[in-house]
Design a protein around this nucleic acid. Sequence first.
DNA 1: ACATTGACCTGAGAGC
DNA 2: TGCTCTCAGGTCAATG
Length: 262
Amino acid sequence: MPELPDVETLKRYVDSTSLRQPIEDVEIDAPRMLRGASAATVRDRLKGSTFKETARHGKYLFIRLSKGRWLVLHFGMTGTLKYFKDAEEAPGHTHLLLHFANAYHLAAIWQRRLGRIDLAESPAAFVEAQGLGPDAFDPGVDLEAFKQMLRGRRGAVKPALMDQGFLAGLGNIYSDEILFQAGIRPDAKAGGLSGERMTALHRAMQHVLRVAIERQADPDRLPESWLLPRRQEGAACPRCGAGIKRMSKAGRSVYFCPKCQR
DNA sequence: ACATTGACCTGAGAGC
DNA sequence: TGCTCTCAGGTCAATG
């Protein structure tokens, strides 16, 4: 699930459910997912805090705690959040569970344990320490900045888009979608794209992210004209009807239309 | 600098 | 039904 639009949706979910509620108790069972702060430190910091505000950078969600510092969550491939009332509703694979004073609960769930829980002084400090590039949806990444960044890359365009140190937030699914909408082959050289194609790529990136966020990153609500609902080998390209191709690259599947993307 | 591979985890779906 | 195999929206380290 969690690429930039999914994490933005989770951020808004926290905003609409969990702000300003005192946290009365905390359960953590996530040894491998804690890399910076220990479970005890995270628990102490959360317990008795409220959530003051949220922020997002790339695929990371940050939540400012009233006792100071920010909770950092990364959702890996299967992570998500659930806010609920009845304790019996606690989902399986919950690795962080907060009990609010209003008797509601917030569960952070990772079916596969690929994810991260941490504390940071600030989102900016974390982004710096982690070596993340600018957020892909940041207006500061305007066309000129984007072109400048691409020109410095020698490799293929898809790995560049997915490189969190280059641009933060895009993963396998959305980078395929953006390249599809821009009409660019995933294995085209990033730095060798014409100015026109870089412009198309930038426009597609903005468009895909904006629409996906508007639709709460729900695959069932994304436009039929997108590649996303047909990411399977041989499916009909929504634009030209040709068969969608699948390639394996760096251990991940790449889907594209060989006719529309050149 | 860049690309590839395997490891980390668990579950779903396909094929037999 | 049950087994085995492959794959899944991410990242990191190690290797060519």
